[in-house]
Structure formats: structure tokens, C-alpha cells
Amino acid sequence: MTAPSHRAFDTAVPLDVPEDLAGFETPHPSATIGGPRRVRLGLILSGVFVAFLIAASIAPSLFTHFDPLVGDFSEGLKPPGWAHLFGTDRLGRDVFARTVFGTRYSLLIGFGGVAVGLGAGIVLGIIAGQRNRILDEAVSRLFDMLSSFPGVLLAMLIVTFLGQGMLNIAIAVGIAGIPKFGRVVRAQTQLIRDADYVTQAAIYGLSRWQVFIRHVLPNVLVAIPIIATVYIGSTILIVSGLSFLGLGPQPPTPEWGVMLAESRDVLRVAWWPGVFPGLAITATVIAFSVIGNHLQQRFEGRLA
């Protein structure tokens, strides 16, 4: 648990200058090789897109004046154009309006699912990360069991038990995500439990519980936002899949998976009712993954 690299930064101390004045870090040469930092276009685009997603889910009517639920039959299956940006579906509803209003469902269920998975994953991971071998074995085997099912299959199974609906689908994808979060939290807990500063806290005379609350838990949790961002994309993908299968929100809800399912019958004659929500799913998943991966790379190794 020592960090020998840190002490190499001791800067030379001039003879007549007190050590205090020499306390700046000398950057490692390799840190500055390669010139100015490249502008990460993908990251910027992803950030902007996610900002739009959040805006669209809070106030979708800012982006469109069409009602996502009401259509004009005479306007059915109009191709994309000036009147309807993404065209209209079979019932004459504006596809762009439905896509914009659908953001809310995908994000809500996605965040909800991650929250459920994280909540349970953190509790179980911390339990497994303690020095109790029996608890660790029990929880770790539970993780193995959960992760031996493909995520979509497991979520389907759970929804079948719980019944359809937004809350249930969030719980289902959350449970499917428990092993992912739980394993990271377990590893992080084990790492920090043995850190020198935890030993030091015991020497202060803090109780085990105080040491846990003050030093172990906060340092385990710093990694959480990063893991969460990485997994939001894949959770949204599973949610859309379940909705597509009819296990999530029901028509006429403008949920992206539901829209995909509805577009199947007309796909032969009109591509737009299916392609645009499909693109929305793809772009959302990519945007969250790009941001998550960036965060992970940037903070890697600084968290332990």
C-alpha cells in the first residue's frame, strides 16, 4: 500500500532558503510530452448531447409544439420534411415530438435502474468487502449467480414476476446490474480497508464504526459517479429492449422501445418511425459511454 512514486517529488532545497519555500512539485517529464492537450471532439459532442437529453426530459415542449399522443390520421406516414422533421407515424403523430417526449422515459428508467443497482450493489459490496470470509463467500456467489444470466433475460424474468410498468422495469434492470456495481464496490472496499490511513485511524482510537464512516465509506464512494455513468448507457439499452418486447410502458406512451415496436408493421413502407427512435437510443448509449470512459481514464488510479 505504499506509494513510492510520491516521494520522488522532493525538490532540491536551497541552502539558505527554508524548506517551506521549496515545496512545489516537479512534474514528471513524461507528463508534459506530446504538446498541448488534444481537443476531444467526441467528448464535447457527447456532453452537449447529454445536456440536450436532460433538457428534453425536463421540458420537452420547448423543442416541439406537436402533441406526442394526438395525431391527424390524414397526415399518417408522412416522410421527414419541413412540416414534420422526423415525419409522422401510422396514426399521424409527429415522430420528432414522440422522440423528444420519449427521452424522459428512457432517462428516468435508466437512472432509476442504475440507482436501484447501485444502492443494492453498494450495500452488498461493502458487506462482501469486510474481513468476514463467510459473508464474502455468500455475497460473491450471489453476484456470480446474478451475472450468470444475460442482463436482458434476467430483467425479463423479474418483470414477469413483478408485472409491467415503469417502476418494475427499473427494479428489474437494477437487480440485473447489482453484480457489476457490487463487485467494484467490494474490490474498492478491500483496497481501502487495508490502506495505511485506515490503520492510522485505528491508532487514533477511533472505533471500527467511526473508521468506517469517516475513512472507508467516503473513499469507496468517490468512485461511484464514474461507474454509474459508464453503466447508464447499457441500462438504457436493456430498458429499450424490454419496452420493445412489451414489458415496459404500454402504447401509446412515446417510449423509444415502444416506438420501435410500433414501427415494425410499417417498416416496409416507411423507415422513419423506427429509425429515428433507434438513432436516439444509439446516440444516447454512445454519449454516456464516451463520458463515462473519459471520467474513468481521467480519475483512474487517483481514487485508491
Binding site: T2, R7, A201, G205
Partner: peptide, 25 residues
């Protein structure tokens, strides 16, 4: 350990690697 806690303050420790003995936050 619970019985030692009262006396803990009287016995302190200075480690070799100070940095790793500080909570990074």
C-alpha cells in the same frame, strides 16, 4: 480493542510513508 481505546491517545505513531497514512480527501 474497546478497552485499549481509552489509552490510544497516549501512544502515537509516525510512519515511514506519511502520504499513504493521510486520508486522500
Amino acid at each position: 480493542e474497546a478497552g485499549r481505546r481509552r489509552l490510544r491517545r497516549k501512544l502515537q505513531y509516525i510512519p515511514q510513508d506519511a502520504l499513504s497514512s493521510f486520508d486522500p480527501r
